[in-house]
Amino acid sequence: MIPVSKAEVQKPQNNVYPEGMYKVGRDIAPGEYKVVSTGGDSYLEVTKDSTGGFNSIITNDNFQGEKYITVGANQYIKLNGCVLKSK
Rank of each mutant, 00 (worst) to 15 (best):
G39N: 03
I2F: 12
Q13C: 06
N15C: 02
T70G: 04
D49N: 04
L79I: 08
G52N: 08
N74D: 13
N55G: 11
G53E: 15
V4S: 11
I2D: 10
G39D: 03
A7C: 05
N55M: 10
D49L: 05
S56Q: 01
I69N: 07
E8C: 04
G20F: 05
D49Y: 04
I2K: 15
E8D: 04
E45C: 14
I28C: 01
Q75V: 02
Y22M: 08
L79Q: 06
G72W: 14
P18L: 10
F54V: 15
N14C: 06
K23G: 03
Q75P: 06
K23D: 00
V71Q: 07
N80G: 07
I57R: 06
Q10H: 10
Y43K: 05
Q64M: 13
K11P: 00
Y22T: 03
K34V: 09
T47M: 08
A29E: 14
Q10A: 15
T59Q: 14
V36A: 09
Y76K: 02
P12F: 09
G72S: 15
N14L: 14
S42M: 01
Y33P: 02
G52D: 04
D27M: 09
F54L: 12
K67C: 07
S42F: 02
G20K: 07
G31K: 08
G53R: 12
Q13L: 12
T47L: 07
S42N: 00
A7H: 02
N55S: 12
Q10C: 08
Q75Y: 06
I58E: 11
A29D: 10
V16Y: 01
L44N: 03
N80D: 15
V16L: 05
V9Y: 01
Q64S: 13
Q64D: 03
G40M: 01
I28E: 00
Y22D: 01
K6N: 08
V46E: 06
E8W: 00
K34I: 13
N62E: 14
Q75D: 01
S42E: 00
L79Y: 10
P30R: 15
S37G: 14
Q13V: 12
G53Q: 14
Y17P: 02
E19N: 11
N14W: 11
F63D: 07
I57D: 14
Y43C: 01
G52R: 06
T38P: 05
A73K: 14
V9L: 05
S42G: 03
D41H: 12
F54R: 10
N15A: 06
M21D: 04
F54T: 12
T38S: 11
V9I: 10
P3S: 14
Y43N: 02
V4F: 07
K67V: 01
Q64G: 13
K48Q: 13
Y68E: 07
R26Q: 01
G72R: 11
G20R: 07
F54S: 09
